[in-house]
């Protein structure tokens, strides 16, 4: 029973993490119809920027209560600005170009962020950790299961941000504009919507959420260099979550994230239970997510909540 509870908590926390990142993918895809390859690199930069700011402000050796929220807000703001800038410089000129071209550009941006981030003048290549700023204290326990700060923080933050985003997309004027642009960009602009502003806002939001995700991830894992595959893998899992939920759909991204987290946690749990001593299982964890993606794309490419749109011939 306590195992189940622990697994449930893990699933919710992991799902929350994936949801934050998946939302960035799904929002951008909904508006511009392309997979932002560079999104996972914003996540990485989020983690590293937080570390840099925290160490700069001296938070890594004893931090006051407001340290984490402050650092998080600053990082999210910086990443939001980064996202907007990248869109402006690299993607906007290609708004009318074939999708393939933007994809290649996105790969270029991704490589750029990775390699610049690795530079010693910036983040360097040695793994480090952000944990000292806010150690994972146990808050309370349910029965024998400890409920720790990181889990609570992740779940609460993810919940708050997802709900906030949902309200934004479905209940505000900007949200309506976003949905209009994602439905039909040309008609939306004919209706007086400033598409450029909508796109910038989308990137800002997605990048800010990615930053939050990066920080939360950094708390639970070592902060590895920006070109490390952990970030790529994280981004990939979040992307698959977005696809499973129906890419372009905000609620779908959240549900998809929970599903992917569920699979990961439960599969890991049972594999370690029943197949001990298999090193290769760990490696296989990296690829199972591709298999899920292929399965989804084969059977229901529009995902759970997406609608399959028909191309006009």
């Amino acid at each position: 029973m306590s195992d189940l509870l622990q697994t449930l908590i893990n699933t919710l926390a992991l799902g929350g993490l994936y949801a934050l990142i998946a939302l960035g993918y799904t929002l951008v895809y909904g508006i511009l119809r392309f997979i932002n390859f560079a999104h996972s690199d914003i996540v990485a930069w989020g983690g590293w920027l937080a570390f840099t700011i925290a160490s700069g402000l001296g938070f890594l050796s004893g931090a006051p209560g407001f340290a984490m929220p402050l650092v998080m807000l600053i990082t999210m703001a910086i990443c939001a600005a980064m996202g907007v800038t990248i869109e402006l410089l690299a993607y906007r000129p290609l708004r009318k170009a074939p999708r393939l071209n933007v994809l290649i550009t996105a790969i270029g941006v991704s490589l750029f962020l990775q390699n610049v981030g690795m530079n010693d003048k910036l983040f360097g290549t040695r793994p480090t950790t952000i944990v000292p700023m806010m150690p994972n204290t146990e808050l309370f326990s349910i029965g024998k299961v400890p409920v720790r700060l990181y889990d609570v923080l992740t779940i609460v933050l993810a919940l708050v941000l997802v709900v906030a985003l949902e309200r934004l997309v479905y209940r505000t004027k900007m949200g309506r504009a976003m949905r209009a642009v994602s439905f039909d960009e040309r008609v939306a602009s004919l209706m007086g919507i400033n598409v450029n502003v909508v796109v910038s806002v989308t990137f800002a939001l997605g990048s800010a959420l990615a930053a939050a995700g990066g920080i939360l991830f950094a708390l639970r894992n070592d902060l590895r260099l920006t070109s490390d595959s952990t970030w790529v893998l994280l981004g990939l899992k979040a992307f698959v979550a977005a696809v499973v939920g129906g890419i372009g759909n905000v609620r779908g991204a959240a549900v998809g994230a929970l599903l992917i987290a569920f699979v990961e946690v439960f599969v890991h749990f049972y594999i370690t239970r029943f197949f001990s001593g298999t090193e290769w299982v760990g490696k296989l964890q990296d690829v199972y997510v591709f298999m899920i993606l292929i399965a989804v794309l084969m059977w229901k490419p529009s995902g759970l909540f997406g609608k399959s749109t028909v191309e006009k011939v």
């Binding site: 690299a90 290649i104 550009t105 270029g108 390699n115």
Partner: peptide, 8 residues
């Protein structure tokens, strides 16, 4: 870095 910029 050069490659990446070149691509873009």
């Amino acid at each position: 870095v050069v490659y990446a910029l070149a691509l873009v």
